[in-house]
Amino acid sequence: MNETCRVVAASVRAFDCAYARYTSEPFALGQMLAVREGRYLTFGVVTGSESGPDDPSRPLVPRGDPGQSAAAVMAGNPEIELLLRTTLEVAICGHVDREVARPVLPPMPPPLLAEVHAASDEEKVRIADEGRFLVPLLANPAADDAVVAAAIREVARAAGPEGRPFLVAAGKELARLLKAEPSRLTSILRAVEP
């Protein structure tokens, strides 16, 4: 996925980012992203993804012949891709301040139009901080059970051999945070299971 994605709206709790055009393979739900511009490096988890016409007054008509793939329809109608855009919603789960990773909300939003990248495996593990990144994440209403579970799985994968200890730590953190919501805790833990 080489398309550039940039911040188009931002607060200290969340930001929206958009690709210049439509992409059929945007950053995935639960994926941790990094904004490496501004006073603080900002990290967040994808909570939503939407693709459609850039101009909402011009709806996309379902074109194409029976059996024709999306790629073939796009190739046959070259204007379509230029009129669509993919946008993502991201819940902020941590930041880096003077090289110290902090799994809490940053003091200020990431800069508008800053580039958004996939966080590296090392960054994911640092920001997740044995599950403490779940505190700001669970406080964000956009981070539903599927998002939280996907984010935990993603960090576990990034941690490699340390994945299992991370899952145990994250489970304990979840149990602490959701002790008043046992059904939600169960739902997330089930979704985390491979």
Binding site: P78, E79, E81
Partner: peptide, 14 residues
């Protein structure tokens, strides 16, 4: 402007 190639290797543009 619109530049729309159909079966021609050319960059589309709006």
């Amino acid at each position: 402007h619109a530049v729309l190639p159909y079966g021609v290797p050319f960059e589309p543009s709006l």
